[in-house]
């Protein structure tokens, strides 16, 4: 394991937290870590990327509104064709990260291992960890055959840490013409009003599930989140039901949260649902069903009616402030 690439995503405040987590993971596995980035400001993040262990950043450049999947994958494939050979490429499990990983997989004709939550080297090859069946079991897997392994890694699987390195060397890596595959264009961007911390960075997450009974009750979950300076989350069941948008979803198919405190209201915690929140330091669960699986991981479980306990708790917290 000599050389690892990390797909570096940039947000409002520079590289995303997950990007820095991947750089830390890569640094622990290989002596040479390089990043691949796009957008107009790659030079301005070279310092942070270097500080977190990247010696070089390949800059795909400004995509002029194109979605990154096709052009960034094409640029990476072109680098490989030119003889740059990473042993592994780490992708963030994000909206764009998965797009680039999927397209690179076809271009290099290599499969992808996704939902990776751990990486280690065993007998010279990279071994992945994947939670299955709601995190009850861990599968270890690896690639066979030649070529760089493509890995899509879940948030909060590794801790970001500065290594104090010098700024990464910026190397231009244009995508070239990707034909019709690059035809999807962003016409306008919309930032949704967000008060309070982001769901995947919040110290407190208050989440609601089917046991809330109706979409209207979700307002109480939001209110409690506000009182605890946390972020509101949701189970897949109520996202599927259209009560709240997908961006609120916590779990296997949604966001991974690792808060100090997770409070689940009317969430049963069946199979797939426990992935994504088991990393919480403390878990409080309220459910009317004594047999709900979430009670098996809760530090405090209250068997009761969320429509009584939740308003009472909000009232109690309001009277304190």
């Amino acid at each position: 394991m000599d050389r690892i690439w990390v797909l570096a995503e940039t947000g409002e405040q520079g590289p995303t937290p997950l990007t820095l987590e991947l750089l830390a993971a890569a640094r622990g596995l290989a002596p040479r870590v390089e990043a691949v980035a796009w957008g107009p400001g790659t030079a301005s993040i070279a310092g942070v990327l270097g500080e977190h262990g990247a010696s070089r950043v390949y800059d795909v450049g400004d995509l002029a509104g194109a979605l990154p999947g096709a052009p960034v994958a094409a640029a990476m494939a072109a680098l490989v064709e030119r003889g740059e050979r990473p042993d592994a490429v780490l992708f963030p499990a994000s909206y764009d990260g998965r797009d680039v990983a999927g397209r690179l997989s076809v271009r290099l004709d290599r499969p992808v291992l996704t939902n990776v939550t751990g990486l280690s080297v065993r007998d010279g090859s990279l071994v992945t960890e994947h939670p299955v069946f709601g995190g009850a079991q861990i599968v270890h897997a690896r690639f066979t055959g030649e070529g760089p392994g493509i890995y899509v890694v879940r948030a909060k699987s590794f801790a970001a840490a500065s290594a104090g390195g010098a700024a990464a060397e910026v190397v231009a890596a244009p995508a070239g013409d990707v034909g019709p595959t690059g035809a999807a264009r962003i016409v306008e961007r919309h930032a949704e009003e967000a008060s309070g911390p982001k769901l995947d960075e919040a110290a407190v997450v208050v989440s609601g599930g089917r046991g809330l009974g109706s979409a209207d009750s979700y307002a109480l979950v939001e209110e409690l989140a506000r009182l605890l300076h946390g972020a509101p989350g949701a189970s897949r069941a109520i996202v599927d039901a259209g009560w709240v948008p997908y961006s609120h979803q916590v779990g296997q198919t949604g966001k991974t949260v690792k808060p100090t405190l997770y409070v689940g209201w009317g969430i049963s915690g069946a199979t797939q649902r426990l992935v994504g929140m088991k990393g919480a330091k403390s878990i409080v669960a309220i459910n009317k069903d004594r047999e709900a699986p979430i009670f098996s991981v809760a530090d405090l479980g209250v068997v009761g009616d969320v429509h009584k306990v939740l308003p009472a708790l909000i009232e109690a917290l309001r009277s304190r402030s």
Binding site: Y95, R185, R189, H190
Partner: peptide, 12 residues
């Protein structure tokens, strides 16, 4: 299209 910050209008 869903994004971290909100959503993008995408045409294709």
């Amino acid at each position: 299209r869903q994004t971290e910050a909100g959503y993008d209008d995408v045409e294709c």
